[in-house]
Structures are given as C-alpha cells and as structure tokens.
C-alpha cells in the first residue's frame, strides 16, 4: 500500500495534491503539477523487489512486464483518442520501497462520472462511438493491440474529446501471453466479450473483443442501463443473444441501432472485420 504523504515527499519536483483522485487494481492516481501543467500522476501500488532475481520469479515480474507493455502501447499508438504518456515512466523510491510511475494528461472526468446513471444525447453517443472505434483501429494497426478493458471508467474527456485510457490490461497479440493458459485474461467482467470468459488456451482475442466492449458502453450511453446486468445466472446467455430491440423507445438512429447490434453479436466473425467498416456503417448507414 502506498502512503500518500510518502508519495508527496517522493515526488518533490511536482506539486502533488492529496487525496488521490482515483485508484485502480494496481495503481493510485494523483493530480500533480510540474510547474506548467496539471497532469495525472500514476504510481504503481506494488513495489519493485530489491532482489532482482527474486523479482524475476515472483508475480511482480509479470506485473512489471504488464507495466512495460502498458507504456509501450501508449507510446506506440498515435491517435487523438488514445491517452499519451506525458511524464516518465521511471522508478521512484517512495518511503522505503521502489515504485514505477508515469504521467498522463489530466482528464476532465470520465464517461462514468459524466454520465452517472443517465443517458447521453445521440450526438454525444455518436461522437463516443466514432472516437472509440478510431482508438481501437489505431491500436490494432499500430501493433495488433487489444485494450481488453474498455468501460466507462477507462474513457476520459480531454479538451472536449473522448480519450481511451488505462492500458494496464492491453494484449499484445504478437507477444507471448502473460496469463496462464487455463485462465481467462484480465479485464472487467461486466464489460467483457463472450470470448473473454473462455480460458486463454481455447480462444484467441483480437480487436473484435474491444468492439463488443464498445457495444456495451454505447448501449449504456443510449439507454442509461447496462444491457446484461441483473440477469443473474442467465448473464452469459444474455451476453450471447443481444437483441437491438432493447434500444426501441430510446433516442437512437437506425444506423446507430444497427451498429450496436452488430458490435454485440456473439461471435467475432459476426461483428466487423475492421473498425473502419463499423465507422463507415455509422457514417453512411452500410
């Protein structure tokens, strides 16, 4: 666990505000200022072991590799809708332990905080859809990357534009996996695609899993509610049989309705073979 006062002391070159503005599975986020700009300072909550050899054989080695991949993804992908690294990455001694850290642009809220439990206007939903599809397209084109964790908390707003953040679960499909073959990969269960529930040895994820996650986010933005939550033991059955008729009665154009229906198809082959085709459907209706 990180001690906030120790963090502030460790990053004396920045003005770090307390309390933290957020925390995730393995990192704590602070608002900081470098003398010119406010930014989001993200400090990994787990410590780098002092004994490097021990580190190589521990769970931490996997966590470090995941961090390296997160940084690589953010530096590789060039897209206005993908967050960039503004500071670091580097290692800092916090108290008595060493921690990895980096900085990102400070967001003006996330989709989760902006939307709450309400709905977005259709114009905002279309903008959200285009931005996320462009982000997924850029990630796939840059290095066959799959975000795997697209959800309202990982979608931010920056200078009026939608930005995809938090690449901690990013999958490099052309690098060796970090997950045991018998386990499902990382991500958030309520935003996972059907294939993300399968053990890794029986499935091969690609950008179309991200498309499914975008479909859930868009449905929520249109209706104000999650399409599958509340199904109990029937959750997976609902996940694999989405009916776009659920959008009836909401502000939703035919092309947007068709888009969400296609994004939420059970099988990747039934979604879109490129994010560009999804964008075209949204813009031109085919």
């Amino acid at each position: 666990m990180l001690d906030n006062d120790e963090v502030r002391a460790a990053f004396a070159e920045f003005d770090v505000e307390l309390p933290p503005i957020g925390s995730g599975h393995d990192k704590v986020v602070y608002q900081a200022n470098d003398g010119n700009t406010n930014f989001a300072l993200k400090v990994m909550s787990w410590a780098i072991p002092d004994d490097e050899e021990a580190g190589d054989t521990s769970v931490t080695a996997t966590a470090m590799e995941r961090f390296n991949r997160e940084m690589l993804a953010m530096r590789t992908v060039s897209c206005p809708h993908v967050a960039t690294v503004t500071h670091g990455p580097d290692i800092k001694l916090v108290g008595k332990t060493r921690h990895l850290w980096f900085g990102e642009p400070l967001l003006k809220g996330t989709l989760a905080s902006v939307r709450g439990t309400g709905r977005l206007t259709q114009t905002a939903v279309v903008d959200l859809a285009k931005s996320l599809l462009m982000a997924v397209e850029a990630m796939w084109d840059a290095g066959r990357l799959v975000h795997r964790d697209i959800k309202p908390r990982n979608i931010g707003y920056l200078d009026g534009r939608v930005v995809l953040i938090d690449f901690g679960a990013v999958l490099f499909t052309e690098l060796s996996p970090l997950t045991s073959p018998s386990m499902a990969g990382p991500g958030t269960a309520h935003y996972a695609s059907p294939e993300q529930f399968a053990p890794r040895r029986t499935t091969a994820l690609d950008f179309r899993s991200d498309l499914f996650q975008i479909g859930i986010v868009l449905h929520e933005a249109i209706t104000g509610s999650h399409p599958f939550r509340g199904q109990g033991n029937d959750y997976y059955a609902a996940l694999t049989s989405y009916d776009p008729a659920q959008l009836d009665g909401f502000e939703c154009s035919d092309s947007l309705r068709t888009l969400v229906g296609r994004l939420l198809r059970e099988r990747p082959a039934e979604r879109f073979r490129t994010p560009g085709l999804a964008l075209r459907m949204l813009e031109k209706g085919y």
Binding site: A204, D206, R267, P268, A269
Partner: peptide
Amino acid sequence: VQDWLDAATLLD
C-alpha cells in the same frame, strides 16, 4: 465452422 470463421475474417 464458427471458430474457423473467427480466424478467417481477420484476413485482410
């Protein structure tokens, strides 16, 4: 067939 389609439809 579906498994195969999932792979084949990634071909550019």
